[in-house]
Every structure is written in C-alpha cells, then in structure tokens.
Design a protein around this nucleic acid. Structure first.
Lengths: 206, 206
DNA sequence: GTCTATAATGAGATAGAC
DNA sequence: GTCTATCTCATTATAGAC
C-alpha cells in the first residue's frame, strides 16, 4: 500500500495513536533541526496532517519536548533504582548500566540525542524536574564507581572525571548506532564494555 | 591576539574589539540557550549596547555562529595536518591529539560546546564547509588509530566504534572543565590519556 | 558607532466551519 | 478530528537622527 510523501513506514501503519505519532515525529525533527528550529507545521506534515490539527492531541509544542525528555529521564531513573538495590558487586552494576544505556539508545535514539542539549528549552518547572532526575542519576552512577574502587576493581583516578568520560561516551552512542546499524546489541555491549574497562592499549604497563 | 574567544571576564575591559566582544558574548549565550534560543538583544546587552548597534560590526546573527564554528573547525584541521605530517609513532600522534583537544577546550569551552550541535543552524554553504572539515578530521583521526593498531600498540576493536568513543569523550570535555576548573592542564592530560588508553579496570585480564 | 523607531517575517496558538 | 483563516507576539533586520 502506498504511503504519503515523507512519512516513515512505521508511522502510518495505524500502529500508533496520533499522540504517539506526534512524539515520534517530534523526536526525529527535534533531533535533526533542534527544538527551536522545528516548526509545528513540519511535525504535522511528517504525519500527514496540518499544523493546527496537532492541538487536538497536544496542548503546546513544549509539551512534546517535555514528554519526550521526562519519560526517558524517568526510565533511566527507575532502572537505576533497580540496579542500585541489587546485591551484585559494583563492577557488575556498572556493566548493567552500560547495557542499560545501549538498550535505551537502540530503542530510542532520537530521544537520547535530545537529552543532551534540548532540555535547555524546557519550561521552568519541567526543566527543574529534568535536571533533578539527571543529577540524581549522575550521583548514583558515581557512587557505584566509588564502590567499585573501594572493592578493589577500578583504578583510583579523579572520580568526577572518570564518571564524566564514561557517561559522555555512553550518552553519545545514539550517533554511532544511527550510522552503523548493522551491529547487533550483544556485540556492541561487548565492545563498549571492553573499551571502557580495558581501554585501547594492547600492552598495558602494569 | 588570535583565538581569544571564550574569556568572558575581560569582556568589558577594553581589551577586545567590538567584533571580538560580540563573538565572546555570542559563544557564551549560544552555549547557554542555543543559537535559536538566543536573541541579538541579549548579545548586545551582554556587552552593553542595544541590539541594532550590533549591525555596525556584523552583517547577520548567522555570521556570529559561522565565524565561531568555522574558525575553530579550521584550527582543529590545521593542527591535525601538523600532527599527521610528523614522523612520530601513531600512538604518539594520538597522545598529541588528546592534548590538542584539551588545549582548545580550555582556551575556548563555549565554542567547543557549539561545535557538537549548533552547526545544524549554519546556512547551507557554511554548513557544507563545516561538515567537510569535521569529517576530514574524523577520517584523519581514524587513520591514526588504524596505523597504531598496525604498529601493534592498540587492540583490534571495531575501529569506527573506537574512534567514536574517544572523540565523544574528548568533545564533551568542555562540560567537565566548566564544572571543575581547579584541575590544571597537565594533570588533566595525564588523567584523560590514562582513562582512554588503559581504561578503568585495576586488574586487567591479559 | 550608537541610538530610537519601525518594517518584515515567521511561527505558536486560537476560532469556528465541516 | 481535521481543516482554513486569523490573531498575536517575538525577533531579525533596516532607516535615519545624533
């Protein structure tokens, strides 16, 4: 069956509610052109309706962004709680966190991209909520690194820098998966874990 | 006084031309609010004049962005040529590239932030030029990694992923230096090189 | 070179017919 | 629920006095 110009196949198959279609199209276009560089008309066009028709499903352009960002930030937060409260060694928790980032990146690459920068365009209340979720996540992540150092598994580097470099890599993965989709998830996990844990040198100076 | 962008403290000290003041203020505000989220009035206010007065020094808002991005992309490109053409081992070249990123990040953190995302708002011609510089840089970077693998110094991981993870970390450093300014450059270089080259594990499985 | 006033444009959002 | 027509406002950019 034919589909209208510019509408991705999965968007017009009747599998998604209009609200979901708007969120998918919004994530895609916000990623490509930025939140402020994206018009409601272009989002509407992506799903085959006119701009003002969006208002039957959303209350503002900003609501699209805040739904995308807060939903995903909340999922990271929930999954972190789950991992935190397990009884594994900290090093195992770290590996599970790496897997988590890869899982959510593959599921939702556009939203991952937005989480890096577009949160600055959230309205005050949402922005505060988002930053709080992100900062708590970062703190939890760092605590696990500290625990792993205490357990003798990780080197004693400047802990903020260690967290920062790991999270930077993981949070940028959406750009890699967009370009090299042939990689499967398990292979990707193995490679990313090795790069983070073992670095890139072949012969370490021990 | 080349490459003095990004030193906000001295913005009203008469040390900079109006044009330079505009670039410094622009970088700061584009970083904070995004290009589209920044008004010319706010840039003008930052340096103590009215919005329309900017037009005595620039020809458009977009010119501020393109100057910032293309100047810095060109500097990365020039420095890469220098490093490429040296006779060192590839591993030494890689270490020099890490130092380069840290040097330019400390000199110009706001512009580094813009280079990640705001290039999407460049006009077509500038955008093409910018993407070309960036892609050539990325290719050169990867060639050095490949050479270093061939020379037996680096592990044989998926090369695109290796490049990607290293560059993601380095290109995100601006956010770290903004938060932890107490670190000096040499310490930072040592730590970053170790994290990338040796990873974070204390006891490697060799 | 800077100002005030204003033109020109673009885009979010609303009204009301169907 | 979707459409067309329109309102409203913010912002880039220009004109012209000083």
């Amino acid at each position: 069956m034919a589909y209208t110009l510019g509408i991705p196949m999965d968007i017009d198959k009747g599998l998604y509610s209009r609200k979901q279609q708007i969120l998918i199209a919004g994530a895609k276009l916000f990623h490509k052109n930025g939140f402020k560089g994206t018009t409601l008309q272009s989002i509407a066009q992506e799903i085959g309706i006119e701009g003002p028709s969006l208002y039957n499903h959303i209350k503002s352009k900003n609501e699209i962004l805040s739904t995308l960002l807060l939903t995903n930030a909340q999922e990271f937060s929930d999954r972190m709680q789950e991992i935190k409260s397990s009884s594994e060694k900290a090093l195992q928790k770290l590996e599970r966190l790496i897997s988590l980032h890869i899982e959510l990146t593959l599921k939702n690459p556009d939203a991952m991209a937005l989480m890096l920068n577009e949160w600055v365009h959230l309205e005050k209340a949402d922005r505060t909520k988002y930053v709080k979720l992100r900062d708590e996540y970062d703190n939890d992540f760092q605590s696990i690194l500290v625990n792993s150092i205490d357990e003798g598994d990780l080197v004693e580097t400047e802990i903020n820098l260690m967290r920062f470099m790991i999270l930077s890599s993981l949070r940028s993965l959406y750009a890699w998966t967009a370009k090299y989709h042939s990689f499967n998830r398990i292979e990707l996990e193995v490679s990313v874990k090795s790069l983070i844990l073992n670095g890139i040198l072949k012969n370490k100076n021990l």
